[in-house]
């Protein structure tokens, strides 16, 4: 069983691929569990312990303690090198990769940009970014549904982003799981497209609550849709009233300049 998402695909593993083509397999996935097993559990608070001789040790640790610790190490690395690290999250197909391509191709971002690409399989996105002319490392999560701090930590060793640069981390397309995992990023950017429905923020509140910036993409399609932009924004603000919006058509380039301006202010 895969350690990362619980799927039963035994080929699940993490692969880090640098733009130079060098590949190594992460060793943080193991699949040792094969035999069926049952035990008692439930919402029991009556403390009728069978093991009266047992010694209770108070742990009081967050379940994601290890991830959070490593995320703070990443964050410290970014701060020391004055790197702006952005964690790009969205459902599949909202336009994360195109946002990266258009951002790079604009040639209007003052800082050097490098990219970590997260996907379950293939180096397609990394290839797209590489041809846009920036250093990129692909992280394949195998059957995993999100990037975690240790994957980013490993990818950083490959990528070695320079001081004063911008690091874009494109997370796995998924509006649920990536919300739970701090990567050590400076800011989280959620991308939503107008074909997805105004109620997405209410359906996936954790992602919108943990984000700082919300990019609304595919605005060129608005004349063809019964989509209410204000309703989307209001729904998102109900979850997170600090959210900053950018309305962009990545296809036509409309609105991209506001995003670039924001990037240059970071």
């Amino acid at each position: 069983m895969c350690d990362t998402c619980g799927c039963s695909n035994n080929s699940g593993y993490t692969i880090i691929t640098s733009s130079g083509g060098h590949t190594h397999h992460g060793d943080d996935h193991q699949h040792p569990h094969t035999h069926p097993h049952q035990h008692d559990h439930g919402n029991e608070e009556n403390h009728s312990h069978h093991h009266h001789s047992g010694k209770i040790i108070e742990v009081e640790k967050d379940a994601l303690y290890h991830n959070n610790l490593l995320a703070e190490r990443n964050r410290g690395f970014f701060e020391a090198k004055n790197i702006v690290a952005l964690n790009l999250v969205s459902s599949p197909g909202a336009g994360k990769t195109l946002l990266l391509e258009k951002t790079v191709q604009s040639r209007q971002v003052k800082r050097i940009i490098s990219v970590i690409e997260g996907d379950q399989q293939t180096t397609r996105d990394a290839d797209r970014i590489k041809s846009a002319g920036v250093p990129v490392v692909q992280v394949n999560t195998g059957s995993g549904c999100h990037l975690d701090a240790s994957m980013v930590h490993s990818a950083l060793k490959e990528l070695q982003p320079p001081d004063n640069s911008i690091l874009m981390i494109e997370n796995v397309g998924n509006l649920v799981c990536p919300a739970m995992f701090d990567l050590g990023e400076t800011a989280r950017v959620v991308v939503i497209s107008v074909t997805e429905g105004e109620d997405k923020p209410l359906k996936y509140p954790y992602m919108f609550q943990s984000s700082h910036v919300c990019i609304i993409n595919k605005t060129d399609l608005l004349p063809h849709l019964d989509f209410n932009l204000d309703e989307l924004k209001n729904n998102a603000l109900k979850i997170n009233h600090h959210l900053q919006f950018f309305e962009i058509s990545l296809r036509s380039g409309t609105g991209l300049e506001n995003w670039l301006e924001w990037l240059n202010k970071q």
Binding site: M1, C2, G6, C7, G54, V59, Y65, D148
Partner: peptide
Amino acid sequence: MHEFSIAVNIVEIAEETAKLHHAEKIS
């Protein structure tokens, strides 16, 4: 299914703590 990641993390934290106390099993 981030719950599985979280479960694996929980197991790690528990084992780490138990080893500090020289235990071999967690009941």
